[in-house]
């Protein structure tokens, strides 16, 4: 999430809202957000309903897989990065910026 925070200004300039999401409690997310200075919402999917609906539940860790989605203004998924490819948000930033330019 620190990587997204570092790119937040670029993403916001490209009309993009960042939402983190995990199966942590809101309390864990609050403590973590304060520790690492994350200012965008960290959403609590406590129980994992959304994680399971997206097909990202990893039973081995009882947690979500690491996945980045870019969803356009119409609600359609236009980019997706999985697991270790999802750590670096550069592709998401570039996709947002090129979408803005092509508009």
């Amino acid at each position: 999430m620190q990587n997204f925070q570092q790119n937040l200004a670029k993403l916001e300039a490209a009309d993009t809202q960042v939402l983190g999401i995990s199966m942590d409690s809101p309390f864990s997310n609050k403590a973590w957000a304060q520790q690492i200075n994350v200012t965008f919402p960290l959403l609590s999917d406590w129980g994992g309903d959304v994680t399971k609906q997206y097909g990202l539940y990893n039973p081995k860790y009882k947690a979500a897989r690491r996945v980045n989605y870019l969803i356009d203004k119409e609600g359609k998924v236009v980019e997706m990065q999985l697991d270790s490819d999802a750590i670096d948000p550069t592709k998401t930033v570039e996709a947002c910026e090129s979408r803005k330019l092509n508009r």
């Binding site: 993009t16 995990s22 919402p41 980045n68 989605y69 203004k73 609600g75 948000p89």
Partner: peptide
């Protein structure tokens, strides 16, 4: 979806429809 953020606010994906792209980042653990 509608979920609670770290400040107790409800956030829905549809809040941003027609307004903004959404970068939705699933992470493993805080």
């Amino acid at each position: 979806f509608t979920l609670t953020d770290q400040n107790g606010n409800k956030v829905s994906l549809h809040d941003f429809k027609g307004k903004k792209n959404v970068a939705l980042a699933f992470y493993i653990f805080a």
